[in-house]
């Protein structure tokens, strides 16, 4: 039981990372209909930025500052690189985001060097005993922060004027324009939000492990998460991200005993297997849109 709970919490912790990244993907997808492959780079850049800032202003100030700076960076990228591509085929734009990803990552790598950088988080690998189970503090922090961020985001989309405008753009751009909503600003804002979320996710990955040049690979696990949850559902992104984290963690813990013939490291593949199974049952993902329509 202890083992199970530990594994579950570890899964929820790393699932939070995937959920934050997946949210970024989905927010950009919903407003611009493009999957932005630049998310991994923003995540890496966020972690690196914190590793530099933390020395001067402390970890807790560095995280929000870095998230805002990366958001501004993402907004700038959207304005300069992607804005001229509005109206071009989605495929072209997606490829451009890969280019953006490579550029940002190469530049960021120059600031990492060959060593592993530390983000200076206060948790490291230390543990706390929760209900008689020893768990790592960082996983609790990740999960808690993500819950808070998600709650704020959902309230933003539901109640705020700008959030509503973003949803309007997601459903029908012409209608949004006719209501006086600036679609361009919505695009830029969605990139900014996604950038900020990616930066936060990057910091989470780096806590307890440090930042190296391969950190961005983690972001690829957000892809099964968004497909799993449904490409256009924010709730789906969160659930999908957490599901991927938990499945990966549980498989990692038990697969060695239950099904050793699958070989070591099967946990790495598990999210993709989960994705395939879900797609077989629900081709549009768990929460993908089933259209409400009435004529």
């Amino acid at each position: 039981m202890t083992e199970f709970l530990q594994s579950l919490i570890r899964g929820l912790g790393s699932g939070s990372i995937y959920a934050l990244l997946a949210l970024g993907f989905v927010i950009i997808y919903k407003s611009t209909r493009v999957i932005s492959f630049a998310q991994p780079a923003f995540m890496l850049a966020g972690a690196v930025l914190v590793s530099y800032l933390a020395a001067d202003i402390g970890f807790f100030a560095a995280v929000p500052v870095a998230a805002v700076l990366i958001a501004v960076l993402a907004l700038g990228v959207e304005r300069t690189v992607l804005r001229p591509m509005i109206g071009k085929p989605v495929f072209v734009v997606a490829i451009i985001t890969i280019g953006v990803d490579v550029v940002v990552r190469v530049v960021t790598n120059a600031f990492i060097g060959l060593d592993v950088r530390q983000v200076g988080d206060p948790w490291g690998l230390s543990t706390v005993t929760l209900l008689g189970v020893e768990v790592q503090q960082r996983y609790l922090v990740m999960f808690g922060t993500t819950v808070a961020v998600v709650a704020v985001l959902f309230a933003f989309f539901r109640f705020s004027r700008v959030g509503l405008a973003m949803r309007a753009v997601a459903y029908d751009q012409e209608v949004a324009l006719a209501q006086g909503i600036s679609v361009g600003s919505v695009f830029a804002l969605s990139w900014a939000i996604a950038g900020g979320l990616a930066a936060l996710a990057g910091v989470f990955v780096a806590t307890g492990a440090g930042v190296d040049q391969q950190l961005w690979v983690i972001a690829l696990k957000a892809l099964p998460a968004i497909i799993l949850g449904g490409l256009d559902s924010l709730g789906g992104a969160v659930v999908g991200g957490l599901a991927v984290g938990v499945v990966e963690s549980l498989v990692g813990t038990y697969q060695g005993d239950v099904a050793p013939w699958l070989g070591p490291n099967f946990a790495l593949v598990a999210p993709y297997v989960l994705m395939l199974v879900v797609l077989l049952v629900r081709p549009y993902g768990l929460f993908g849109s089933k259209e409400v329509e009435r004529l």
Binding site: A165, R167, Y171, D172, E174, A178, I181, S289, V292
Partner: peptide, 27 residues
């Protein structure tokens, strides 16, 4: 302000959200 042909309401949003979106330029 134009009300587009074919109504074009945002079907998945609530009635009130639709209206609030209409008020975007006069918050």
């Amino acid at each position: 302000k134009q009300a587009l042909e074919g109504r074009r309401i945002l079907a998945e949003l609530t009635v009130e959200e639709n209206l609030r979106i209409g008020g975007h330029s006069r918050p």
